[in-house]
Structure formats: C-alpha cells, structure tokens
Simulated scan of single mutants.
Amino acid sequence: MLTMTEPQVWVLIGVFAAAIFGMLTIMSTLFVRVLRSEIGGLRGEMHGIHERLDRLDRDINALMKHTFGIDRD
C-alpha cells in the first residue's frame, strides 16, 4: 500500500493539480471569448435597431407633414 510519504503519490497529486489548473484556465479563457463575441453581436444588433427606429421616425414625420400640411411652402 502506498503512503503519503512516497514520491509517486506527490507526483500524482502535482500532476492532478496541474491538470485541474490547466482545465480551469482553458475554460475561463473560452468563456471570456464567447462572452465578448456575444456582447459584440448584441451591440451590432442594438445599432441596427437604432437605425430602424430613426427610419421609422423619419417616415412618421413625413406622413404627419403630408396629412396635416405641416411645413408646406
């Protein structure tokens, strides 16, 4: 039976700790990368919505001017 004083046990503990630390690093890096890309996509979508609202506002103003005769020369 192996005891905690044998070098093989400490090597296995070190390898296991290094593997866990490596997996934690990879997963956190990938998570941050995915989060940044999702936020970037959301920003692009919000910009598109803003442009659509500006066009809708322009169209409504044109209809109001046409319907009520506002700003006619």
Rank of each mutant, 00 (worst) to 15 (best):
I20Y: 10
T3V: 05
V15K: 13
I70C: 08
L24G: 04
M1G: 12
L56N: 13
D54W: 00
R55D: 12
M46A: 08
I26N: 13
M64Q: 15
V9N: 03
H66Q: 13
Q8I: 10
H66A: 14
S37F: 05
L24M: 11
M64D: 15
L56E: 14
S28H: 09
I39F: 03
G48S: 03
I26K: 10
L30G: 11
L53C: 04
K65H: 14
M1Q: 12
A17C: 14
H50K: 08
A19W: 10
T25K: 06
K65R: 15
L63G: 01
V34D: 04
I13E: 02
T29H: 15
G40F: 02
I13K: 08
D54T: 01
T5D: 09
A17S: 14
L35V: 04
F31H: 07
T5R: 02
S28I: 09
I26H: 07
F31P: 00
T67E: 07
A62L: 15
I39G: 00
I49E: 01
G41V: 00
R36V: 07
F31A: 06
V15R: 12
I60V: 13
A19E: 05
D59E: 15
F21N: 04
G40V: 04
R33S: 13
L53V: 07
S37C: 09
D73G: 04
R72L: 07
H47L: 08
N61G: 10
L30K: 08
G22V: 01
L24I: 11
L30Q: 11
F21P: 00
T67L: 04
L30C: 10
F21M: 13
G40Y: 00
G40M: 02
G22F: 04
G48Q: 05
D59P: 00
I60Y: 02
T5G: 01
D71K: 04
D71G: 01
V11F: 02
G41H: 03
A17R: 08
G14S: 15
D54K: 04
R33T: 11
T3A: 05
G14W: 04
D57N: 07
D71I: 02
S37D: 08
V9D: 01
A17E: 05
G44N: 02
E51D: 12
Q8D: 10
M4S: 10
I60L: 12
I49Y: 06
L2F: 14
L53A: 09
L30E: 11
A19N: 09
L24Y: 09
F68W: 05
M64V: 15
F31E: 08
E6V: 09
